[in-house]
Nucleic acid binder design. Structure first.
Length: 567
RNA sequence: UGACCUAUGGUGUAACGGUAGCACAAGAGAUUUUGGUUCUCUCGGUCUAGGUUCGAAUCCUGGUAGGUCAACCA
C-alpha cells in the first residue's frame, strides 16, 4: 500500500498538496476507517469552465488516488436559475475530461424530503422559526460586518405555531416572498452567516426534477452540507469563499445530529487574459461578444474542447498548477505549454499556407508532378509517412519572403537559397510585383534537381526550411486564428470605473483562407494537426463536405517573432 | 470598531525547526530538412519589525498588504 503510493507520487513527480496531506493524516488516524469519498457539486445554472476542471480533477483525482469514490451531485436548490440543458452539458464535460461517477449521480433535490425533516427537527428544538419579515426588512436587520443585527420579532413564535406555519408554507398557502424559515442562532455573531440565516423560501416554481411537488425550496447553505452528510462524503472540498460558511454547516450538522464530513477550502483558479465567473461568461454569450458557450475563445470546457484542447492536456494542467489557499492567477502560457506538449507527440504534421504567395520554379518541367515523402510525426515513427505532391508552382507563406531582409532572416530573399521541406533546395532569382500596389505577386526561383529530399546532395546546409503547397493540388480551407479574449492580464482588476468588457480584444478572432496539402481531405471533426511551422489546429464542427474549417489551438513557439519584436 | 483566510523568483508551487528546490515565463548556447521538438546553461525569491532557538520561509507577537463575508443566489 505504502509502496504503491510512493510509486505514484514518483510517477507524477510532485509533492503532496495540503489537501492530500490532510487526507493522508486522516487515513493514518483511522478517520472514517480510512475511507475517502469526495464529490463534485455543481449548480446546473451554466456551463463548466477551466476553473471547474481544476475542482473536477481534484475531487475525482483524490477519489482515484486513495482508492475511494467520487460522486457527481447537482446542487439544484434554485429552480428559477437551473435547467436540464446545463445538467446535460455538465455531465458531458465531466465525462469528456475522463472521469466516471459510476452509479453515483445525485441531486440535492433527491434530498428535499430529508431536508424538510431536518428543518422540522430544528423547529422542534426551537432552533428555527418562521419569519414574516420582507426580504428588505431581513436585510436591514441583519446589521453589517462591523455592526450587530437585530432579532426578528417573529423569533419568539412557539414551536407549535412554527410547525403549523412551516407546513402551510409547504402546502402552498402563502405567496412567494411572504415568509421564510430561519435558523435561530445569533444576530450579534461576528460571522454574518450565523445571523439567523434563511433556511427555506417560498418559490412557486417548476423544478426540473421535482416538477411542481414543492413550492418551498431549501437555501444552498441548508442543503449543501447536509447533502454531503447524507452521501457520507469524507472530505468536502470547496473554494475559499465558503470558509466563513463552515461554522454554519457545522452548526446544522451538530443540531440535527448527523454525520459530519470534513470541509477543506482551496483557492479557485484564475487564468490571465480571461474571466472566470459564470455571470461574466453568460454576459459575453448574451451580448454576442462570442458566438456561444463553446466559442473557442471561451475558458469553458466546451470552448476549450472545440478549440482543440485535449482532456489529457487539461488534466495535466490541473496537476501542474497545484492546490493551495492563496489567491492565484495562472499565466495562460502554462495552459498553452500543456497543450503543445501533448499535441507535439500526438498530432500529425501537415503543410498549410495561411497567407499564400506564389513561387514559380522556372527550371522545373511544366507538367511534372512528383510525390514527395514526408514524415507524419517526427516524435512518433509509428505514425508513418505520407505523399505530398510537388509541381512547378507552389505557394509559400508571404512572411517567408523578404526583399530586403535583416541579418537574422533565414528564409527566402533575392539570391538566397532555402529548402522546401521534403522537396528541393530552391534559389530566388527575381520578383514580380503589382505595378500599382507594389505587392509581390510572384517569386521566381530555380530549383536544384540534385537536392531532392533523400538524395545525397540534399544534405547541403541551408539556413532555412519552408513549408509549401503545390498550387494545383492545394485544398482551400477556412482557418480561424484566435488570440486572447482580453487585452488585460486581469480584466477583473478594474480601475477608474472600467469593467472587464472594456478590455475585450477586438482582434481575438482572425479568419483566413488557407491552402493545405491534399492529405488534409481525410480530416475529421475535432482531429488535431500540426500545420508545419505555424501551430496546432483542430477541425471545427462548422466544417462541411466542401469546406474544412480549422481552429488554431495554439501557435508554435516562435523565437523569430521575438527577434522581430526587439527590432 | 468586526470575523475568517492568505503572504516564498515575473507566474504558480515545494521545502513539515537543519543546504530555499521544481515547473512555466524570460535570456544565452548546442542539435535540428519545423526559427518546432530535444539538450545544456543563465537570470531571479522567503512582505515587514521584533521575539523564541545552536539554528526560522517554517514557531510566537505586532505591523503591512491582499482576499472573503452584509441574496428569500450558489
Amino acid at each position: 500500500m505504502e509502496e504503491i503510493k510512493i510509486a505514484e507520487d514518483e510517477k507524477t513527480n510532485r509533492a503532496l498538496n495540503f489537501i492530500e496531506d490532510i487526507i493522508e493524516e486522516d487515513i493514518r488516524n483511522g478517520v472514517n476507517e480510512g475511507r475517502v469519498h469526495t464529490r463534485f457539486p455543481p449548480e446546473p445554472n451554466g456551463y463548466l469552465h477551466i476553473g471547474h476542471a481544476k475542482s473536477i480533477c481534484l475531487n475525482f483525482g483524490l477519489g482515484n488516488k486513495y482508492n475511494g469514490k467520487t460522486n457527481l451531485r447537482f446542487d439544484d436548490t434554485n429552480p428559477v436559475k437551473e435547467d436540464v440543458e446545463y445538467v446535460e452539458s455538465i455531465m458531458e464535460d465531466v465525462k469528456w475530461l475522463g472521469f466516471d461517477w459510476q452509479d453515483r449521480l445525485f441531486y440535492a433535490s433527491d434530498y428535499f424530503d430529508q431536508l424538510y425533516e431536518y428543518a422540522i427537527i430544528l423547529i422542534k428544538k426551537g432552533k428555527a422559526y418562521v419569519c414574516d419579515m420582507t426580504a428588505e426588512e431581513i436585510s436591514e436587520t441583519r446589521g453589517t460586518p462591523t455592526r450587530p443585527g437585530k432579532e426578528s420579532p417573529f423569533r419568539i413564535r412557539s414551536v407549535e405555531e412554527n410547525l403549523d406555519l412551516f407546513s402551510r408554507m409547504r402546502a402552498g398557502e402563502f405567496p412567494d416572498g411572504t415568509r421564510v424559515l430561519r435558523a435561530n442562532i445569533d444576530m450579534t455573531s461576528p460571522n454574518m452567516h450565523m445571523r439567523d440565516p434563511v433556511l427555506y423560501r417560498i418559490l412557486h416554481a417548476y423544478h426540473h426534477r421535482t416538477e411542481n411537488r414543492w413550492c418551498i425550496y431549501p437555501m444552498y447553505d441548508f442543503a449543501h452540507g447536509q447533502s454531503d452528510s447524507i452521501e457520507h462524503i469524507t472530505h468536502s472540498i470547496c473554494t475559499l469563499e465558503f470558509e466563513v460558511h463552515r461554522p454554519l454547516y457545522d452548526w446544522f450538522i451538530r443540531e440535527i445530529g448527523i454525520y459530519a464530513p470534513r470541509q477543506i477550502e482551496f483557492a479557485r483558479l484564475n487564468v490571465t487574459y480571461t474571466v472566470m465567473s459564470k455571470r461574466k461568461l453568460l454576459e459575453l454569450v448574451r451580448e454576442g461578444n462570442v458566438s456561444g458557450w463553446d466559442d473557442p475563445r471561451m475558458p469553458t470546457i466546451c470552448g476549450l474542447r472545440r478549440r482543440g484542447y485535449t482532456p489529457e492536456s487539461i488534466r495535466n494542467f490541473a496537476d501542474i498548477i497545484g492546490v493551495a489557499k492563496r489567491d492565484n492567477i495562472i499565466d495562460v502560457s502554462l495552459l498553452e505549454f500543456c497543450i503543445r506538449e501533448d499535441l507535439n507527440n500526438r498530432a500529425n504534421r501537415l503543410m498549410a499556407v495561411l497567407d499564400p504567395v506564389k513561387v514559380i520554379l522556372d527550371n522545373y518541367p511544366e507538367d511534372l508532378v512528383e510525390e514527395m515523402e514526408s514524415v507524419n510525426n517526427p516524435e512518433d515513427e509509428s505514425k508513418g509517412k505520407r505523399k505530398v505532391p510537388f509541381s512547378k508552382t507552389v505557394f509559400i507563406e508571404r512572411d517567408d519572403f523578404m526583399e530586403d531582409p535583416p541579418n537574422k532572416f533565414f528564409r527566402l530573399s533575392p539570391g538566397r537559397e532555402v529548402r522546401l521541406k521534403a522537396a528541393y533546395i530552391i534559389k530566388c532569382e527575381s520578383v514580380a510585383k503589382d505595378p500599382k500596389t507594389g505587392k509581390i505577386e510572384e517569386i521566381h526561383c530555380t530549383y536544384d534537381p540534385t537536392t531532392k529530399s533523400g538524395m545525397p546532395e540534399s544534405n547541403r546546409k541551408v539556413k532555412g526550411t519552408l513549408h509549401w503547397v503545390s498550387a494545383k493540388h492545394a485544398v482551400a480551407a477556412e482557418v480561424r486564428l484566435y488570440d486572447r479574449l482580453f487585452l488585460k492580464e486581469n480584466p477583473d482588476e478594474n480601475e477608474l470605473g472600467a469593467t472587464y468588457k472594456d478590455f475585450l480584444n477586438p482582434n481575438s478572432l482572425n479568419i483566413v483562407s488557407a491552402l493545405i496539402e491534399p492529405a488534409v481531405k481525410a480530416a475529421q471533426i475535432l482531429e488535431k494537426y500540426q500545420f508545419e511551422r505555424t501551430g496546432y489546429f483542430s477541425v471545427d464542427k462548422d466544417s462541411t463536405t466542401n469546406m474544412l474549417v480549422f481552429n488554431r489551438v495554439v501557435p508554435l513557439k516562435d523565437s523569430w517573432s521575438k527577434v522581430e519584436k526587439v527590432k
